[in-house]
Amino acid sequence: MQKLFLKICLIIVMSQGALCAKDYNASLFGIKSDGVTLNTPSIQKAIDFISEKGGGKLKFYVGRYLTGSIQLKSNVTIELNEGAVLVGTSSIYDYVGANGIKALIVADGQQNIGVSGKGVIEGQGPTVLEQIAKQIQKGYLQETISQASPALIALNNCTSINIEGFNLQNACGNVIALTACKQVRLAGLKIKSTTNKETKGLVFSKVDGIKLENLFIETVVSEIKSDGLSTNISLVNCQYASGKSLIFKN
């Protein structure tokens, strides 16, 4: 009986050990901080690797990390330490979407995911927008500008999401778009995205359970927009650039 108990304990400890989040430095996967190497496949490889190993943090330290769309996977958190800038590429065909919304960071059907730290996600909005307009004009891109404009973060059908602490700037599309997600926490984000007049700060639809804490949002048009189908929303100490408190209208 006691032996069985010990065995069970051991199994529990071991299984938790396996799930225990490990930290991985970006450089392990050859991800370059030089601002010119397009890191998309390497970052994706890192995320897939960490997710397959049971989850953990992919840590970026000070530097500029150029990338196209990367897809977050279950149990992976991207940590942007102070000075780390995830830079969206100006090459528009490097973006893919989740549920039809293109974004720099996308996730579809994942759980327990996050982005955190004191770093920056930089969308290079004006440059990307210019490229989109050119490609549409030439007839190569058969989408509307808003369909083609990548958000900074777009998550669809994900559960248990924590997005916390960092700075988001110069989105081409919206800054953060959430559809059909559950248990979402957005905290301490500093959003400054005025380069595209159409950009909205937060857009969400059919989200169940979202906490918004200590957000600062500066956009030209609406800072926050919901389609009215979301439930369980709480707002604490969120501000517009104008100094007004952010009020949520469902």
Binding site: V36, T37, L38, T40, P41, G68, S91, Y93, D94, Y140
Partner: peptide, 10 residues
């Protein structure tokens, strides 16, 4: 210098 994979594919 620029990795063109996605644009060439497009």
């Amino acid at each position: 210098l620029t990795l063109n994979t996605c644009s060439i594919q497009k």
